[in-house]
Design a protein around this nucleic acid. Structure first.
Lengths: 215, 215
DNA sequence: CATTATGCGTACCGTACGGTACGGTTCGCA
DNA sequence: TGCGAACCGTACCGTACGGTACGCATAATG
């Protein structure tokens, strides 16, 4: 088990030791590979070369383990902050396209899909706890980046909208459409991502048609 | 157990007896109420007053039962065919808004959410079989309606687009945005649907801005 | 060196589930 | 009326999982 850079960051962000982070990494691997069924306490202990007793001491519970996995994974995500340089229509468009590509990359990632599937499965049998956690931790970051980008565009008189969150919702819908759901349902993520590439610019252009300031 | 009209239609569409349809209805109820954990063979048998042996005889397997539930539910959905009357800009807009509302209604339905959660959970541990089934059976219907509507709009020179499926993807994204995912993750569907109501018209207006024919 | 803490590996327990088998009952049909 | 098919209710079996307990090794600390 190699302790990666983001791995350490994820562990530190969640207040965990490096060892515990490594265990969570293995657990995420199991989840990605075999779904929720593969995420058994015995399986995690075996794969991570630790004892079940330690798992329960560290994370308290299977649900605690899952929550820790989400927090750990969220801690690895680092938002690229938009360059604060002067914004022109062209650079704004480029930033938006880059955002679209990054968004799809995040949503189509193995770990992201696996965690979303896990939280969705859990959502039915108990409260929306994990779902909220995933939403808060994961989406907050990418949403902040989008909000900053939109706000900068408005300040530069390149975008026009009343409410930033509504504009973000529009942008999100134009980019993602039903791709996320289809990937969650098992459609090949790589194929969908490929098919998406040419669509990123179209989505951004559509968004600019809707919210670009009249020149 | 009351045999509803759509219930009979669903059973007939799947080539099942009325009794088997009633059993599937109870199974769907269990799934909606308690998620996948509640969908045990013993539980279904108890709730439907039938024996486990009959379940296995009829559906072969737990997965067969689930597939039958999806097919049965899909059989209940009947698409409202668009009125073939003359299409004006106003009636097209009205039809699109109605479509948007219906789409959200379908996606936010208890049974739809439960089945989607089930298929998503299953997608991780085995192929995309159930996901494809759900996609084909459920989405085909509503997609057909949208395609017909868009095509009619184009024929009436009220809409302009190159590919109907891309236009549909745009419309879908504008309407749904991330609402479906949030509902799947456990956010209160009723609240989201309420919040959506005023947005339906905005989404349609945005779509018309993008694809409405210049007048 | 003694002690204490940490943690691994394994064994164990209770429970719950998928799937099968069996006795008894109802109902259509000859 | 007799027969057979369908089916209900229940009991049963093997397995697998979550969670706990125990024995032992390792290492830090005084």
């Amino acid at each position: 088990m190699q302790a990666t850079e983001q791995g350490r960051a994820g562990a530190a962000a969640a207040g965990l030791t490096e060892r515990q982070g490594a265990v969570l990494e293995r657990a995420l691997g199991l989840l990605v590979e075999g779904g929720e069924r593969a995420l058994t306490t015995a399986g995690v202990a075996r794969a991570a070369n630790c004892s079940k007793e330690s798992l329960y001491k560290w994370f308290g519970d299977r649900d605690g383990l899952i929550a820790a996995m989400i927090a750990y994974q969220a801690g690895k995500v680092r938002t690229v902050e938009a360059s604060a340089g002067a914004l022109t229509a062209e650079t704004l468009r480029a930033h938006l396209v880059a955002f679209a590509v990054d968004l799809i990359d995040v949503l189509s990632g193995d770990v992201s899909l696996a965690l979303n599937r896990l939280a969705i499965g859990q959502a039915s049998r108990e409260g929306a706890g994990l779902g909220r956690l995933l939403q808060e931790r994961g989406r907050r970051q990418i949403g902040k980046r989008a909000a900053a980008l939109l706000e900068a565009g408005r300040k530069a008189k390149l975008l026009a909208f009343d409410r930033a969150d509504e504009a973000y919702g529009t942008l999100y819908g134009l980019i993602v459409s039903d791709m996320h759901l289809r990937m969650l349902l098992g459609e090949d993520a790589a194929a969908l991502r490929k098919e998406f590439s040419p669509r990123a610019e179209k989505a951004v252009d559509a968004f600019l048609t809707l919210h670009g300031a009249k020149r």
